[in-house]
Structure formats: structure tokens, C-alpha cells
Write a protein that binds this DNA or RNA. Sequence first.
DNA 1: CTGTTAGCGCCTTCAA
DNA 2: TTGAAGGCGCTAACAG
Lengths: 364, 364
Amino acid sequence: MPNKKNARTRHTSVSQRRQVTIIEVAEAAGVSIATVSRVMSGSPSVRSELVERVRRAADELGYRPNPAAQRLASGVGDTIGVVVPNLANPYFYDVIKAMNIAAATEGYQMLIADANEDPDEEFDLSTNLLRQVDGLVLVSPRMPAASLRRLAQENVHIVLVNRVAVGVGLPTVAVDNYSAMVEICGHLARLGHRRVVYLAGPELSWQNVERQRAVEQAEAFGLEVQTVPAGASIDTGHAAVDRALELKPTALVSFNDLVAFGALARLQELGVRVPDDVSLTGFDDIPFAAYVSPSLTTANSPQRVLGQRAWQVLHQMMSGAEVDDTPLVKAEVVIRGSTAAPTSSTPDRLPSRPAAGSAAPSVH
Amino acid sequence: MPNKKNARTRHTSVSQRRQVTIIEVAEAAGVSIATVSRVMSGSPSVRSELVERVRRAADELGYRPNPAAQRLASGVGDTIGVVVPNLANPYFYDVIKAMNIAAATEGYQMLIADANEDPDEEFDLSTNLLRQVDGLVLVSPRMPAASLRRLAQENVHIVLVNRVAVGVGLPTVAVDNYSAMVEICGHLARLGHRRVVYLAGPELSWQNVERQRAVEQAEAFGLEVQTVPAGASIDTGHAAVDRALELKPTALVSFNDLVAFGALARLQELGVRVPDDVSLTGFDDIPFAAYVSPSLTTANSPQRVLGQRAWQVLHQMMSGAEVDDTPLVKAEVVIRGSTAAPTSSTPDRLPSRPAAGSAAPSVH
DNA sequence: CTGTTAGCGCCTTCAA
DNA sequence: TTGAAGGCGCTAACAG
């Protein structure tokens, strides 16, 4: 508890009024606190006259139950926790937003934690949240399976999003990354591409593992695949391009859209044209993928569905229902302007200018 | 409390263990619960030998204090609430993320609520959150001043972000929208633009009021300004373009970047070239503004600073410190590719094709 | 420095 | 259908 009570600033002029408790309501209504409690929780076994009286007293006094007390007494609350690797990634927002809406519909609130792409922090935040929420959603967790297993042992309901962990016994909601990525590679192969570089995501990311597996699998289609480590954000994509180009690929396959954006910016700085000189693909189809230029060929990972389903599963667990193991969610490949057939004259030497003029976007 | 306890699914195989309480730790360590409490809260007045014994007992048993009980007993907690109009707007990401990081550094957690651009829900969510958090941040609230005033009366610390409300007595952290928008208009005027349409944001948004005020003020520069209502999201921008074009402007000034993105997409569908046929500006400089094509002229609203400052102010209030009224944060205008001098041949009739080929991004 | 003891506000048997 | 009373787990005086 980092806090002290009883603060006062020149902004808080009005005399702070204490919390209205159930006792005051009971007195005002001339009933016992038990009755008030019953009325507040909508118990049917209260004479309607009393219900009326209590209701009136309650909102005249502006009574609102104290959640901490409710939770302490009843053992349950109305909030769920969510841990994400990085709050700055739009991909997660859609998942979170969908989840939040679904949860709010049933009266639940959301405690959010940002792990900053750090697996250890992820675990710490999770254990911490565990104590105060009724359910926990881990979105794309990077923490090791052993950590997940420890969490699974705890007395809280947990669901995993976009992380399939075998032998952990946690229900999972995930996208079929593999198939979609195979399709993307197939698309490139059909266009006539041969040399492809995969701009890899975070090593510990299940999604990265799946996508990379697919890309490598694509060698069966005659693609020659090499991998360059990048990450999950715009700047890692930007930074990885130079190494990737040394391998003289005709196409760059990015871990996700953000990496692709970064790569695109760098390519433009270098004067390498997309898709004329090199094709580029993303993954996730975040809302901006359609608005960059050239618009990005990517795979539409249905975030909203994921979010809704995650809540649905969690809710099932919390209400003691049997949990359906949900199948992988399909991701649709979206062909846009950033991919095309390779030209015969793949540039063997690159332009030496470090950056084009004012048109070149700067990366922060 | 929407919840029931005691759920069981085929996933939760291990026998759920009860919460370890302070009593068990006390017994295991052979001390009183008061001592355990002291040790856990780092009180200096405990013999180091006992500290040691308690610590060992605590983590052997895996003891973690129950936050609900702590909060009930002490009256304070360690979580702050945040209400945003729309979680899907990237503008808010950075504000939230910065705030979250700052708060986490001091041991605070974040309860998030999405008001879905609905002022009433905003108020409800706020009053609800009020009961269970130690501080509340309202980001760009659209609710009426009267509602804010009621909230201000409550026994919680509140800070406003990007909403200046006079006579409400709530500390505020905000961007200087007005000056930046005046600058944007000046930029257009210097380029030689005369007829400008403002794609307005949400009516109840203070930021919109400020930006619109600035645009209208720009008539002093010789700009002829007309306003078309749009909103705060991509699709509202997309939808507003047709009406805007009827006014035959040489430049479109958008409420924010998202609206500009939507407008850009629609303009491209119509075959109207940016900036050749019409210039376009945004506001906020979200990370993607540099990556669309043409890259967007906009104003860099320093979200991170806002987030940090919001936390700083809130923290000051919560710790009873005097609150500095912070001055408006300056927004820098960023000139990019979407603005240029108007050509003499402003298209009087538009191309009739409803949409260009595969290059036209689709809006969802 | 340490232990005892009231509560914090509410829920929930258990009787009536 | 209602009320009385015992906790929920912890903090914070207050004694010693």
C-alpha cells in the first residue's frame, strides 16, 4: 500500500464526506443491515414494501457498497486481470477492447498490466494480480511453460490467448498462425519469389515460433528461407532491414505488421522500392495496414473474436461451467499492394544515399 | 458481484489450496500477527531476528497479503482508475502506457474503463470506479461540466487529461491544441490555400472545441473556413469526405489523425490526389502518421508527457502534497507530405469512378 | 520492540 | 420473510 490517506489540496475545497455505510442505510430505512444487503443483491425474498423503503433510503444517502468489503466478506469480486506484453501494440488493444466490452456487459471490470516484453515481469505481475482478481487473461505470454504451470496451480481461473502451452493444462484461445503464414509463403512462391528473409519476432513468443515454423516449412515450396532477428515493434523492423538486405532477398516476410512498417520505412529511406524491388508482408492486419503505402499484404488475425472468446472461456470457468476447448481461430490472408512478382533486375547493389528527402518517414 | 465461487473444470485438476492468511504465518514464525503485519509493511521497529523468521515463514508458506483486506482495514489501496473514451484510439495508448509505467514504478496498478464515446457511460464508469480506487484519471472526458463537478465532490482524487473545465476545480493536464492548430492553419495559408474545410471531431470534446476555435480564428489569415462534422475515428473521416468536397476546398483540416486517415482513404477511392488536388492535415501524430502515404502533416501531441504528468499530479494529490497547476503542453507541428501549395487547376468536377483499383484501401 | 484487541464494511448462516 | 451475530484478513491504536 504505497498510499497515505487524507490528502488536501487547493483543488479539493468541498468537505470530503465519509463513505456511506450499510448501517446508515439500514437505520434510515428502519430495517436490519441484512435486509439492506439482501435488497442490494436483489434477493427475491424481501417484502416489496421493504425493498422500496431500502431503495429509497439508499439512493437518498447516495449509498454504494464498498467493493473491498464485499470481496472480503464474500470471497468473490467483479474484476478480471489482463497481462499483455506491450500496451503500445495496437494488436493487443483490439483484443483487450473486445474482452473489455464483453466483460463489462456482465458487470466485470478490467485490471491491466503491461509486462514491457519482459517474461519475468510477466510472471510477477501475474502472481500479483492473482490475489485480487477473479480471473486472469494472459495475452501472448512469453514466460516459460514452467512459470505458466506454477500459475495454473493457483486458486484463480486463467486463460491463455495466443500461446499454446502443452502440458500446462490452461485453456487456450489462439489464432492459427501456422496455416496463415504458410499461405502467405505460398502466395509469394506463386508470384515467383525464391529468396525470402523472415524478420523474426520475439524468440519466446509462441506466435513467432509458429510463424517461423511455417516460413521454414515453405522451403518445401522451393523457397530459400533465411532468418534475421527483429522483434515485435516498428523500430526493431527498421533496424533489421540492413542485415536482411545483405542476404539479397526478393521478399521480406515480417513477424507482424509493426515490424513490416519499420521495415517499409527503412526500405524507403534506402530507396528500395516496395514491391518493385522487394516484396513485403506483415501479420495481424492492424487497422493501419490498409493505410500505409503500399498497403500491406498481411494476415487478418481476428482480434475481436479472440477477445470475445477469451472472455467467454474465462466466464465459463468462473461460473463453474465445463469449458469447451476452443479450436484455433482461422486467420485470413489479405493480399494488398506490398507484394508483387519479383522483377528480373533485383538490385545487386543498393543506392548509397542513406535517406531520401522529405518524403522519408522518420522513425522515433 | 456477478460471481459465484467454487468453480471446477477439467482444467483445474490440482486441489485448490485456500489462501494463506497472516495468522498461519504468525504461528509458523512464533510471533503475533501484528508483527507479521509490521514485517510485511517494512516497519523498521522490528528486531531483525524476527524479521528474518517472519520472512522465512512467509515465503515458505507462499503468503501474500489479501489486498481486499488490506484496503478495508487501512482505507487505502494501490490502484488507480483510468477512463478513456475509446480504447481503440491509438492516441490514448501512449498516454495510458506512460501513465501505467509511471504508476507501476511506485507500486500502483491500473483499472481501465472504456466509455465507448458515450458521455453517460463515462460518468457511470467514473462513479463506479470511484469506490475502489485511490485516484482517477479521466482522459479526454466528454461528459458535461456538471457531471465533472459532481465527481469533483467525491472523496477521491481526480485529474483531467485534455479537458479544461473552468469552475470545476479539478487539476488538469492538457495539450495546447489551440496554438498548434493555428500554426497548422498558418502553414496552409502560407502555402496559398484559401478555402479550407474542417473535419470536426466529437462535439463534446474539449479538444475539438479548441481546435475548431483555432481553425475559425484562422479566417483572420484570409482563410475561408467551413466545417463538416466527422468524429474521432477512421470511418467518420471516411464518411465526411464527400460532403466536404462539395464545398470545393483546397485543403482538409482534420480533427485528428484517424479522421485524416479515413479521409485519405476516401480521397484515394475518389481518385482525388493528395496533396496535388487537395492538402490534408491531421492532429496528434500517432505513430502511424509517418507511415501512410503521403505521410501526414500533423501536430505532435506529446502523449507520453501527458501520461507522465497526469500520474505525477495524481500522485501528488494522493500523497497530500500541494498540486502544481501545470501549464499547457506544447504541441509541435510536423510538416510532411500531405500538404502542398494548391494547384491552379483545382478539380471542379470529380472523377466519377467510385473507387480506384486494388490500390484503394478498404475501410472496415 | 512486541502482543492484544478493536474495528474496516459487508455477507451469510442460523434462528426466530 | 427478517434480524442477530460471527467472521472475511488485515491494520492500527494502545498497552505492556
